[in-house]
Design a protein around this nucleic acid. Structure first.
Length: 286
DNA sequence: CCCCAGGTCAATT
DNA sequence: AATTGACATGGG
């Protein structure tokens, strides 16, 4: 890979195993939009980024090398060697096909607070509406940025919020869960600043204190907000897929999480993303 | 009018 | 410990 800074843009050449369409449409993030065939615009960590892909070349518009190093390099998980990981996950013909299909997915390292709220909203919901609710949340309670976009509201931005205050974003019964998350994080009852130092099971234990967070949502936060690739979030799609692929192993819904861990090891979270993408691409017919 | 959507909670067996 | 229905909302 090569990095170049030219006319206000940071340009990456020859980035392997990275595809924007796959990365942004595999259900891990909700704030990126396609604005032309090869270009997306989105917000992360209070920054707006416009990014264009042509094969292995990526143009990050109006982005300094400092911003790339400080934010986007980690956010897009650029340093990780996905080639080696994919080899270890190709345990059978279906996984080979899943990797061939979604092999350009990068596990985004998102803001933890943003993933907490986003995946609370995701419960029993569909992706277009999740995006709509999060957009409304940002427009109502975030801070204005460029291009008419808004930051994701911090816990401080949401201090004192009530269910009634959240009514305009149309989150339904999830609004009370969001209020609980704000209160527990602001009070320090759930200390999200300590998460990076804690092991995966301890973080999960903390996350489960928040109303509206169960095992699946906690696993998504661990994977997409903390980079814990050793968790295997199980939603309806993954559950159905795994039960078809490995019927003898998958008994209960909770046990599928462990089966994923056993089959795919420390990178089972990445395997989960390949499977999720592949299953959805094929309408569940795997 | 029906069903479903990246689930979770609380009540019940 | 496992099962079941409610929970808001919008789209097909």
């Amino acid at each position: 890979m090569r990095i170049e800074f030219k006319s206000n843009n940071t340009i990456l050449y020859d980035v392997p195993d990275f595809n924007l369409d796959q990365t942004f449409s595999c259900g891990q993030c909700f704030r990126w939009n396609n604005i032309s065939p090869d270009t997306y615009i989105g917000v992360a960590f209070g920054r707006v980024l416009k990014i264009t892909q042509n094969d292995g070349k990526f143009i990050m518009h109006n982005t300094s090398v400092e911003d790339f190093n400080k934010i986007w390099n980690g956010y897009f998980d650029i340093p990780r060697n996905y080639g080696e990981i994919k080899k270890s996950l190709a345990i059978d013909s279906v996984m080979e096909k899943a990797i061939a299909s979604g092999g350009g997915i990068r596990i985004l390292r998102q803001d933890v607070w943003e993933t907490i709220i986003s995946f609370i909203i995701s419960s029993s919901n569909n992706i277009p509406r999740i995006k709509k609710i999060i957009t409304a949340l940002c427009e109502n309670f975030g801070e204005p940025l460029e291009e008419g976009l808004y930051s994701f509201p911090s816990p401080e931005n949401l201090r004192g919020i009530t269910e009634d205050d959240l009514a305009p974003i149309r989150a339904g019964y999830r609004a009370k869960y969001m209020v609980d998350a704000v209160n527990k994080v602001l009070s320090g009852d759930v200390d999200i600043s300590s998460f990076d130092k804690l092991d995966t099971d301890s973080v999960r234990q903390e996350l489960l204190k928040i109303n509206g967070i169960g095992n699946k949502v906690a696993d998504c936060i661990l994977l997409f907000g903390l980079g814990r690739t050793d968790v295997f979030p199980v939603d309806v799609w993954i559950n159905n897929t795994m039960c078809k692929l490995y019927p003898d192993r998958c008994t209960s819904l909770n046990n599928v999480r462990l089966v994923g861990r056993e089959l795919f090891g420390n990178y089972c979270g990445i395997a989960q993303q390949y499977l999720f993408y592949y299953a959805r691409e094929n309408g569940g017919n795997i």
